[in-house]
């Protein structure tokens, strides 16, 4: 019996007449990498927006770490240990990489109503930010303005920001989106290394990455979860093949 970190039960969300999340029930177990795949427009991003609290759910329950979080707003969920990265890079482009990461660290270092002490002099925050950037191989970019980074590096920074929150659950929305082959390989290796430390729910279109990394895979089509299981199960599932993988 493994522990379930994130439990989603009968979750719904509709936009106008469109059911973006249709009665989704899903468990993410402690320590696993759980991949969420599905064609474009399947509602994957909507689902993780509901998990991170950016979108309110119409109905259903979300439980995290044994506590119901359905009614909690995004900041509260974040403080409980859910970190989310974005598909469309949403780093703060006018800030340096270190400032970007430091803001994530700072959020989990007590309140930020100190209006007097320069944040640059808060060594515990800065040191942690530097070590996170270092761990992802970006230490030479500490003082680089984030907007001036190459696309692949911006994606890396996006990941660094999520990691800096030291989360229990890392929710990644297409961490490899728009990355070249080399950069992708680097990030896949890096994510492998995170396997022991974090529980990860990841959306990804790169099937090589998904089948290399994931312990379990869930497939979403038109807002519904049509299958969930080990990579081998998913590869062999006829429903999935026809809906998603069946093109070749």
């Amino acid at each position: 019996m493994t522990d379930v970190l994130l439990r989603i039960k009968d979750l719904n969300k509709s936009f106008g007449g469109v059911l973006a999340t249709d009665n989704v029930t899903l468990d993410v177990e402690q320590g696993e990498i759980h991949a969420l795949i599905g064609p474009n427009g399947a509602g994957k991003t909507t689902l993780i927006s509901q998990i991170s609290g950016i979108l309110e759910s119409d109905s259903g329950e979300i439980e995290f770490d044994g506590k119901p979080i359905t009614r909690l707003k995004a900041p509260a969920r974040s403080l409980m240990g859910i970190a989310r990265s974005f598909q469309i890079t949403s780093i703060l482009k006018d800030f340096t990489c270190q400032e970007n990461v430091a803001l994530a660290v700072q959020a989990h270092f007590g309140h930020s109503f100190n209006i007097w002490k320069p944040v640059a002099s808060e060594t515990n925050i800065q040191n942690r930010a530097i070590s996170v950037l270092d761990s992802i191989g970006m230490s030479e970019h500490c003082d680089t303005i984030a907007g001036e980074l190459a696309h692949g590096e911006q994606r890396q920074l996006e990941l660094a920001i999520a990691l800096a929150m030291d989360p229990k659950l890392l929710v990644l929305d297409e961490p490899l989106a728009g990355m070249g082959r080399l950069d992708s390989a680097k990030i896949i290796e890096f994510l492998k290394g995170l396997k022991q430390k974090f529980t990860i729910l990841v959306i990804e279109h790169d099937m090589d990455a998904v089948f290399t990394l994931a312990d379990r895979i869930s497939v979403m089509v038109y807002g519904r979860l049509i299958a969930s299981g080990s990579p081998d199960d998913i590869r062999g599932d006829s429903l999935v093949r026809s809906a998603y993988l069946g093109k070749d």
Binding site: L79, A83, F86, L103, M165
Partner: peptide
């Protein structure tokens, strides 16, 4: 949105 997700 980013800031909300960071926990602010």
């Amino acid at each position: 949105t980013r800031m909300e997700v960071l926990g602010y």
